[in-house]
Simulated scan of single mutants.
Amino acid sequence: MIELTAKTIVLDLDDTLYLERDFARSGYAAVGRSLSRLVDPEQFATVCFELLAIGHRGDIFDRALDYFGIEGDERDIPAMVRTYRGHEPDIALCDDVPAFLERFSAKRTALISDGPEAMQAAKVRALGLESRIDHIILTGQWEGDFGKPHPRAFREVAERSGHAPEELVYIADNASKDFLAPNEMGWLTIQVVRPGRVHNSSPPTPDHAARLTLTSLKELKPA
């Protein structure tokens, strides 16, 4: 196991503490239910999830509606997106997360997550993280583009912790944006590469790459 000497453990949310595909599956089911007068809800959700699995992202609802032949006034993509983002998700922490949080319960903890604030807050509630994480920052609360890799959230965590850069660690999954700012600030960065994660892209530059890579939080223990 890898011993962490960090005094503040900072975590990402999506595909780090739970699988983002589970939120997608839950959201597609909610959208399917909202369209029950037009399609079979379960079949609609299955089609959407299959589109996600083969790599589609921003056009999933368009393609699903094409599949079911839904046109005209019934084709309300903005309403579907609102339902997807606004539903109460049926998601759960990955198996290794509860024990990890228990092992590091004596440390300060923080969470930094991008995305619409209400949607991310619903995930936090569903996962029961409000009582398990000391400081939660949802970057969607701020007007403007302050999502990762912008350093604003990382600076706030560092200032609030009062710890030196070498005493902070950021654990996340997405090498395209998660690690650039904490790397530049001198933190330790760790990438969790979970099977079934949504983002599989390589770091665009060496500065974007995490210092360590692992497949499970079981590999970490406090020093």
Rank of each mutant, 00 (worst) to 15 (best):
E74C: 09
E143K: 12
E219R: 15
L180V: 00
I77K: 08
D114H: 06
A99T: 08
Y67I: 03
M80L: 15
L180F: 12
P182R: 05
Y84R: 13
T139P: 10
Y170S: 10
S113W: 11
G69A: 02
T215L: 02
W142S: 11
V10I: 10
T8Y: 05
P116V: 00
R103K: 14
R33Y: 00
L93M: 14
D22I: 02
W142K: 04
H56P: 15
D73I: 02
S131D: 12
K218H: 15
E143P: 13
L19P: 08
N183S: 04
R57W: 15
R33G: 00
G32I: 00
E143Q: 11
I70G: 02
D66I: 00
D12N: 12
V81L: 14
F23M: 04
S131R: 12
L11V: 00
A153P: 06
P206Q: 04
F100Y: 15
Y28A: 11
L168T: 01
F68H: 03
L188T: 09
S34N: 08
C94N: 14
H163S: 07
K218M: 13
P195S: 09
A223Q: 13
G186P: 12
I70D: 03
D95A: 15
E50Y: 02
G128K: 10
R33H: 04
A64Y: 15
H199I: 13
L52I: 05
E130P: 07
C48M: 04
T8K: 08
A118D: 07
F49K: 14
G128N: 07
D14C: 05
D40P: 11
A175S: 15
A29H: 04
P89T: 05
S131E: 14
W142Q: 03
L220Q: 11
D59F: 05
F44D: 01
R33M: 03
L13E: 02
L138A: 00
P78H: 04
E156V: 01
A92G: 09
H199D: 15
L217M: 13
R57Y: 14
S34P: 12
H163C: 11
V192G: 06
T5S: 13
P151N: 08
Q141T: 13
D96W: 07
P203G: 02
E20K: 01
K148F: 10
I70V: 06
S113Q: 06
R63P: 13
V193R: 15
A164F: 02
D12G: 09
P182D: 08
N174L: 03
P149V: 03
L4R: 02
G55M: 08
F44L: 03
I77M: 12
A209W: 12
G147K: 03
T5D: 13
D15N: 14
N183T: 02
F104Q: 09
A6F: 00
K218P: 02
V39G: 03
L188D: 08
A153V: 02
E3C: 11
A210K: 03
D14N: 12
D134G: 09
A172M: 03
L52N: 10
I190H: 03
P116C: 01
T215Q: 13
E184R: 15
P41H: 01
G140R: 01
